[in-house]
């Protein structure tokens, strides 16, 4: 009983110390991090999406907007593994593959300030957001995440494209 009490006290002390130091460190940082993360904003206005953006921005889009952007030949990046990409993807979507090659492609296709879209399998997968943040750190400003991803696109009966993996 005495041992349990001692371990409990030590555990609480270590946790308390971590909270206090975490608060102090975040308060004294030049750019402090908000304690509660804000969800990525959903954008529905096409005019707003098509305009160049000069400050880092990652926003979500719905399937209706995604479809319109495909029709307007806005680049789509498929963040899933290559094997899934080759089995089927949104028409003209580019596989994420090698980050260096992808940034070279986006540099030529859209430049740093024009929009492009990243998607993965569905709104539960993390790789589209992860890739979006990676591309943002490479300097791309105007990134949209299609949260519904491949599953929503395919389930909606929209056109798909299948490519050979050779």
């Amino acid at each position: 009983m005495k041992n349990v009490q001692r371990i409990w006290t030590q555990g609480v002390a270590l946790f308390g110390l971590s909270i206090i130091v975490g608060i102090a460190y975040n308060t004294t940082r030049i750019v402090s991090v908000p304690w509660i993360a804000q969800p990525i904003q959903l954008v529905n206005e096409m005019d707003r999406i098509l305009k160049p953006v000069y400050e880092p921005s990652i926003k979500n889009i719905s399937i209706d907007i995604a479809k319109q952007l495909v029709d307007k030949n806005i680049p789509f990046i498929d963040a899933r593994d290559d094997e899934y990409y080759h089995e089927g993807h949104i028409p003209h979507a580019h596989s994420s593959g090698d980050l260096i090659k992808l940034t070279e492609y986006l540099d030529i296709a859209v430049g740093l300030f024009n929009p492009f879209v990243v998607y993965c399998s569905d709104d539960d997968c993390g790789s589209s957001e992860e890739l979006a943040y990676q591309l943002q750190s490479e300097g791309f400003m105007n990134i949209y995440v299609f949260k519904g991803g491949w599953k929503e696109w395919n389930a909606s009966g929209l056109p798909i494209e299948i490519t050979s993996n050779e």
Binding site: L14, F15, L17, S18, I19, V21, G22, I23, Y25, N26, V33, P34, W35, I36, A37
Partner: peptide, 10 residues
């Protein structure tokens, strides 16, 4: 965010 600010210190 809160976890990312406390867990590394723990």
């Amino acid at each position: 965010n809160a976890i990312a600010l406390i867990l590394p210190w723990l």
